[in-house]
Computed example of a mutant assay.
Amino acid sequence: MQKIKTALLSYGMSGKVFHAPFLNIHQGFELLGSWERSKKLIQDDYPTVKSYPTIDDLLADDVDLVIVNTPVGTHYEYAKKVLLAGKHAVVEKAFTTTVAEAEELAAIAAEKGVKLAVFQNRRWDSDFKTVQKVITEKTLGDLVEAEFHFDRYNPLLSPKSHKETVNDGAGILKDLGPHLIDQAACLFGLPKSVFADIRYTRENSLVDDWMDLLLIYEDFRVRLKASFFVKEANPAYTIHGKKGSFLKPRGDVQEDDLKLGKKPNLDSWGTELESLQGLLHTEVNGKEIKEKIPTLQGNYFSFFDGVYESIANNKLEPVTAQDGVKVMQIIEAAIASNAQRTVINL
């Protein structure tokens, strides 16, 4: 099996939790190390890897793939540098801060003949995979509306300055928003238009921390909501069709398990509690059905396996640069809609 030599651009929470564990267990990747500016931590977990003092030192090494997992406002600058160096890249969400930046990165990757993927790992959450299956099976009939939530209760400001200072990459729309937006676009494609309400709700917050986006499609509507003031959770997914409804609470365990230091495996990883199964209430062949639906297994490993296949066997990236462009188009439309208090056509 071809080994893809891979390096990270940071080893904070995302590098330690979301990337390194999967790169380490996948037989197709070799984790070379990470760029670490101040704290030198990666060798505590992976003693044989390198800690690069600069991005130039990292790119000068025999690296095939670079994970751009730095703050959102730096994604464009660093991803461009990686691509121009002829390296494959995975860029975290939000892909960039503007549509123009996203389109430029996609063009550079195409020109250089390298792979460029966006790390939209929530497509491989157990709850979303189950929602996707229910919608694909069309047991709800023609869709009328859907509502996706990514809510938390956390009134405190983040200690990470880049998350709470005014900059092009800060705010809930570019933090939790891309998860919801990408999932909606993955299921339904690009909407015809967008209406957005974006607010500041935490005390002393300088960045947006509440969002309500309405994606307008030809025959149905999708609402995307995120807030830091939800103590009693709504269903994470509510889908209503002309035959029935499906309600699913957020239940994916992968992030929590990774934060606890649990190592991903391919057998039981990403298995939800049965108590968090979604409720399907619909009609099939004239018979009314109201039952809990078993939740599919979640596994972020599938994203990395898709990246491997794209590089080693020239297959399509699991989340393409054009997928990233679509998400940025919706984000830009949401910003414009909120500012103008009107519907923005795409």
Rank of each mutant, 00 (worst) to 15 (best):
E147T: 14
K163D: 14
I135Q: 01
E145D: 10
I135K: 07
T130I: 10
D127Q: 05
F150Y: 12
E147Q: 13
D151Q: 08
R152K: 11
P159D: 09
V134N: 03
E147Y: 02
K138H: 09
F150M: 10
N154H: 12
G169V: 07
L157N: 11
E145V: 11
L143R: 12
P155H: 11
N167E: 07
G169Q: 08
D168M: 01
P155S: 05
N154P: 02
E164G: 03
P159I: 11
E145Y: 13
Y153W: 13
H149A: 00
D168A: 15
R152D: 07
D142I: 09
L156W: 07
P155C: 01
V131F: 05
L140F: 02
T136N: 09
K160V: 14
V144D: 01
T165E: 13
L156N: 12
T130Y: 07
A170F: 01
T136C: 00
L156G: 03
K163I: 10
G141E: 03
T130G: 06
N154S: 12
S161R: 12
H162I: 05
K133N: 06
A146M: 13
F148Y: 14
K129G: 13
L140S: 04
H149C: 08
V134T: 06
V166A: 08
P155G: 04
F150S: 12
L143K: 09
V144S: 07
T139C: 13
T139Q: 11
G169E: 08
P159M: 05
E164P: 02
A146Y: 06
K160Y: 15
T139G: 02
D151P: 04
K129T: 07
R152H: 05
F150V: 09
P155N: 06
I135C: 04
L140T: 08
D168S: 14
A146P: 04
P155T: 12
N167T: 10
K138T: 00
H149G: 01
F148L: 13
V134P: 01
I135H: 00
S158E: 00
K129A: 09
D142Q: 12
